[in-house]
Design a protein around this nucleic acid. Sequence first.
RNA 1: GCGGAUAUGGUGGAAUUGGCAGACACGUUGGUCUUAGGAACCAAUGGGAAACCGUGCAGGUUCGAGUCCUGUUAUCCGCACCA
Length: 845
Amino acid sequence: MASYDFTSVEKKWQNKWAKDNTFAAKQDYTLPKFYALVEFPYPSGDGLHVGHPRSYTALDAVARKKRLEGFNVLYPMGWDAFGLPTENFAMQHHIHPEIVTERNVARFKSQLQSIGLSFDWNREVNTTDPDYYRWTQWIFLQLYKHGLAYKKEMNVNYCTGCKVVLANEEVVNGFCERCGSQVIHKTKSQWMLKITAYADRLIDDLKDVDFIERVKTQQINWIGRSYGAEINFTSTQGDTITVFTTRCDTLFGATYMVLSPEHALVSQWLEKGVLKNAEEVREYQIAAAKKSDLERTELSKEKTGVCLDGVAAVNPGTGKEIPIYISDYVLATYGTGAIMAVPGHDTRDWEFAKKFGLPIIEVVKGGNVEEEAFTDCETGTLVNSGFLNGKTVEEAKEAMLEWLSSEGKGRKQVNFKLRDWVFSRQRYWGEPIPMVYCEKCGWQPLPEEELPLRLPEITDFEPGEGGESPLSRHEEWVNTTCPCCGGPAKRETDTMPQWAGSSWYFLRYMDPHNNEAIASPEALAYWGPVDWYNGGMEHTTLHLLYSRFWHKFLYDIGVVPYKEPYKKRTSHGMILGLNPRSFVNMSKEDQDRLVAEHGSVEAAKKALVEKYGEMAEHPVVKMSKSLKNVVNPDDIIRDYGADTLRLYEMFIGDFEQAAPWSTNSIRGCKRFLERIWSLQDMLVDGDTYRPELEASFHRAIKKVGSDIDTLKANTAIATMMALVNDIVKTGAINRAEYHTLLMLLNPFVPHITEELNERCGLSGELAYETWPVYDEAKCVDSSVEMPVQINGKLRGRITVPTDSDNETVLALAKQDEKVAAALEGKTLVKEIVVKNKLVNLVVKG
RNA sequence: GCGGAUAUGGUGGAAUUGGCAGACACGUUGGUCUUAGGAACCAAUGGGAAACCGUGCAGGUUCGAGUCCUGUUAUCCGCACCA
């Protein structure tokens, strides 16, 4: 037997697959189809990370198995290549982003190919390719034409690090999702996409798709739908102040109002001079505007506010006058930017009322409003509320809504946390927004025939001082003619965010070279929707939400024939690395040195925490360049081979959970493959499974098949390891057995299995074979070993023919030496037999 | 604060629907082979001398609980003044 030279074996098969187009999706639309999708990567300068292959290999196994089961499989790959890191790199090194992108893509591609993933490379897409972004721009124009894209002066999130505007989804706790810099507010004129118009459907249609629960709940929470009412209060100045509330039943308990500091009425009153404490109010407004999101949350514990002196409101329920405050705990961007405060039944209002000495009225009985706000909607009964008295909260809400609408004082209303999508970025490396501004005609869309609107060739990518796009400096590009009147006009200089190109890329794979449309109607109808989409949880409220929104829009305008883009969505856990700053991961010498230095292990650990922060307490952390714990898949492929890398990534643990990388454990996978390789020495003739292995094989086929379908590759592999252990014990493997074993392994380790299959002449190429079938009836052995328990404690074991009746089993059980001894002198109370599983005898005395 | 998830040997992790806890690996120990290092292979490996005890902790249901119920703790994730 030749030794297992994985490098040449893997190269050989990769070349053959490329040459034969083995994994190309077929153009035949009559075949049953399966579309497997993984998120296309951002081709960063760092190259592939060991995290990438985890997701890619898992779906590769699914795709390979589906092909073997006769499906026409589409498993494509491409590049989400617009984005800031490339642009920043280009700026630092004075290389055009296009060249940087090209280089990074080439590197990523060769890395991916060295893993032996069965992508259909004929369908590769790249979001920075003008033939691609032409259609991204086209979709934008359709959005514009349908009133879903608009330009608006907005208070936006601005990243101080990236010098760019961010979408709400890109801000995490007041910091930039990408670079971690602080986010501040700026007023800017921005293109916006009306994702809010789809808020209801983005929630409701989740019931028709098979997404893992946490993805669904995260999307639902992000969209944040709440049902309630808008109620009109009147001010002593005669204005109408509309509030949104989910608890209209508590109207009689509203003892004051709060407006957000940015509320339009506040400025109006200031201008009219009706406020006696105008100075104080202005100061509060300025202070609130200055606060970043971060400060606003940090300071959330202690409530602040100013009472508007000179104006009051009338509670439409009680008819009583109540004071109006401004406070930054009321958000300008949610609801109407104004609330009725019901301190008895809202925790925030209660805190505010306590601080400012405002009256607290109980209108729902059931708690003690002097102690804390009573917010329970299930148990209380309305009191002090006129016509609502005696009703439950639910009944009171209904009655109040009826009363409000009949009196014209309010109406039912649904509100969302979701905001429209800020779609402009002041950067070069993105799709130009195909809009033109004309003094006479206003904003005009570029005619579709003029797409793609290409990026101009420039060399200065730095964003402008005032946060304007670098494109704005290039007059020859900016100055154009108005598509409407033909007069002089200027192009929009902002570009689209990175999420634009990825919002529809899965459609382009269906027909990537189409020059007439994003894809042909036939291709869209046949391939879509994506049958299985796997990707990171970090994209749940970004890419996943955005692409569902675009897709629904494309459905509405008749471009795609189905409402949801993805039938099924799963998510992989991260691959973590060892934390070199954690005490337990340090070398013995370093540990000893630290202990000597600080006196004890505890003190040494404490010192590490002081030095590096809490992170030092975690033995496993995200891989990062600064910690130097990043594992490069190239090294693993060089030292162990692609099949070992694939197998290890699948064996590492539950696919959905984060898992620490362990270079030790990878050897076990290598060993297993060596074992598979050396099985060829035991090869004997035989075209059926030998009787002693028959049940093991049928069970393995069943288990491996279902495990691939449910992403439980770790147990599939364990099953095959156990099967190999069983085979080795017999000292031989016959041709039928070897063939089945190689088939089962093929989706995980395609190179070594093809090679062995060829060397032993077992069949033609495995890639064109049929997935093995099992027979349920043959999954069971002829006899089973059953444990015998007495009072639930294991006392003996018996071997009986499978499916023996209870009498036989009990008789045998009682004959067992240990069991008989344990029964001695006791009274048998109950006998329990679980067929083929266990015997339990309950005794007394 | 609210919501969700998780907790099993020295480690990663298994365990149909309540039915032999620790599959499969890693590591460790011993052995074989080797000039050596390594690799490979074989054996043992939850704790305990044993009776027994063992799935974060405390209860409960059951003939039987890692699994179900009640309470509790820790960790992780999401949301976070959303009226």
